[in-house]
Design a protein around this nucleic acid. Structure first.
Lengths: 204, 204
DNA sequence: CGGCCGGTCTGACATTTGTCATGTGCGCCG
DNA sequence: CGGCGCACATGACAAATGTCAGACCGGCCG
């Protein structure tokens, strides 16, 4: 039998992290060598312990899972990165794969299944949850242009157009124009509904 | 030694539920007698297994944790209800306590701590996470009147005022007035920002 | 009782927002 | 090269929104 697979676990919810670590440790060929509760901490732990596989939660304080994945990819090319998430949006999956993530799955999987997938990913395979993949395909790519997405982001917290225009250094009319265009593409009646939809799809 | 404490565990994330169940089972005086992945399922399981303590996730498909807690309170008065949540809003805590919930804590606690709190709650005590309690107190009660909250709810998905007025059977001017008033109370510049703030506080 | 307060409801007015027509520049393909 | 499509940018106009002053009702307190 080959050496055990060294795993890094990052999730801000201690209850989950600890419990999953305990279950994974029961598997003879897996060893949880490090745990982290935030994005930066996950990076630091990875540098220190050089795991074979990193299992990251998508939403963590500090830096989001995809950002951590990208850094990890650059610093430790030999470390396979997997993302586990509670609320998956289609856009996240796409960004994650672009960042070199090798596994992407929801928290509805069982611990046993997670262990299997860790082995598979460590063996060089990729794994994407079938349902999430279907969502991503049916939702398609973001139809928004770069500026449209940028302005929608600024509009997401309900700021008035004047404020957005100031921050983006654009004329107010221009801002309205982009937001209107974005709303039309998303089938929304106004920019606020558009922002909501874009977030749901993971496009913002 | 007294009989073991019979626990019901409800959470839609299988990974967490299974892992926590495994860890709790390691405690000699605790037994996980039922698991559920949705609100209605949790109710059905509780009826069938009559647990001593129910540990519920706040956000589940079907019915939210507080609603399940209220039903449980009515049907199984002897069963203590605890709520565990990832993203806690001040308002949730207040509603949960009003529904007779005996424990309220974030998922950042450890499994060992969870076990301790289960014992404490089963012994008749209450437990509220100190940090969540502080948030709830500093956020205070909702300043919104009934109608204001109702209309803000309808406005939350970005619908135009005419639509809201139709659904609420009110004049458009009246709707604008309530939303304006609500926005003023929340310190927001418009109804969309107001809706966002109200949600953050758990007031909507 | 009578005044006061807070919640509910409305229409008129000014401001903000969304839509439209228009123009510029860049990259791609025939 | 010349034309086409697309992203980017702007201002004028029409529609939606927020603000204001005010009316009605029910409860509360002096």
């Amino acid at each position: 039998m080959t050496a055990v697979i060294r795993v890094l676990l990052a999730d801000d919810e201690h209850l989950i992290r600890g419990a999953v670590a305990a279950l994974l440790t029961l598997e003879e060929d897996l060893a949880v060598v490090a745990e982290a509760a935030s994005g930066p901490e996950a990076l630091a732990m990875a540098r220190a312990h050089r795991p074979d596989v990193a299992v990251l939660d998508l939403q963590m304080p500090g830096a989001d899972g995809v950002a951590v994945a990208a850094s990890l990819r650059a610093e430790l090319p030999g470390c396979a990165v997997m993302i586990v998430t509670g609320h998956a949006r289609p856009g996240h999956l796409k960004r994650a794969l672009a960042a070199g993530v090798r596994g992407f799955l929801p928290k509805t999987v069982s611990a046993r299944r997670l262990a299997e997938i860790i082995r598979s990913v460590h063996g060089g395979h990729r794994y994407v949850d079938p349902e999430l993949a279907a969502d991503a395909i049916s939702a398609g790519d973001s139809p928004l242009s770069e500026r449209e997405a940028e302005l929608l982001e600024l509009a997401a917290d309900g700021a008035p157009v004047a404020e957005i225009a100031r921050r983006a250094a654009l004329a107010p009319g221009t801002v309205r124009n982009y937001l209107s265009s974005a709303a039309a593409k998303l089938g929304a009646t106004n920019r606020h509904a558009a922002a909501r939809i874009a977030r749901e799809r993971g496009w913002l």
